[in-house]
């Protein structure tokens, strides 16, 4: 936490006194620190003169905020309508199977990958789709998944 406090103070200084800045502040904090820990939220609450419950309330309301550490690469499996009718479930299963993860355990032990579902990535014409970090992969089949994941994996992951 000690190193983080300096980073946090820098971010806080940017938003202090600006109206409606809580969400961008939390977004930037998460981008810098990887996730929002209890300590981080308590620290922000103190500095922003807000109840910690309010910060926690906002952080848990929006699906983008993570309260646990996440892997280096974020895999978003699209569960939109077009992907659903193109059997997105089998894609998700292939991702989880390849990384030996499950619905409950969504981050690999080497902290290389975190898998999450998203409502829609808006690339419906390429369904089924997943997004790894900023890159979209479309027209997928379960068989194509291992090769895609391999590009991001370390020796320990697969």
């Amino acid at each position: 936490m000690a190193n983080n406090i300096e980073l946090l103070d820098e971010i806080l200084a940017k938003y202090q006194g600006k109206k409606g800045s809580l969400i961008p502040l939390l977004q930037e904090t998460q981008n810098t620190l990887g996730y929002l820990s209890r300590e981080t939220m308590a620290y922000i609450a103190e500095k922003m003169h807000l109840p910690a419950a309010e910060i926690f309330g906002v952080a848990t309301f929006y699906s983008m905020f993570r309260l646990k550490p996440q892997g280096k690469h974020l895999i978003r499996v699209c569960k939109g309508t077009a992907c659903h009718v193109s059997d997105a479930d089998s894609i998700k299963k292939a991702v989880l199977d390849t990384l030996q993860l499950s619905e409950e355990k969504n981050t690999t032990a080497d902290m290389q990958f975190t898998v999450m579902e998203v409502a829609c990535l808006g690339c419906c014409s390429l369904s089924p789709v997943i997004m790894i970090d900023g890159r979209t992969y479309g027209k997928l089949t379960p068989a194509a998944i291992p090769a895609i994941l391999k590009q991001y994996a370390t020796e320990d992951t697969l």
Binding site: G20, I23, P24, Y62, S63, M64, F65
Partner: peptide, 25 residues
């Protein structure tokens, strides 16, 4: 520009404004 944080209900106009204000949408 305000970046959303992943909540479908924020497409509803009153929820959207709550979100811009930095609250739960």
């Amino acid at each position: 520009i305000k970046e959303g944080a992943g909540a479908f209900v924020c497409g509803e106009e009153t929820a959207l404004m709550q979100s811009i204000e930095g609250k739960r949408g």
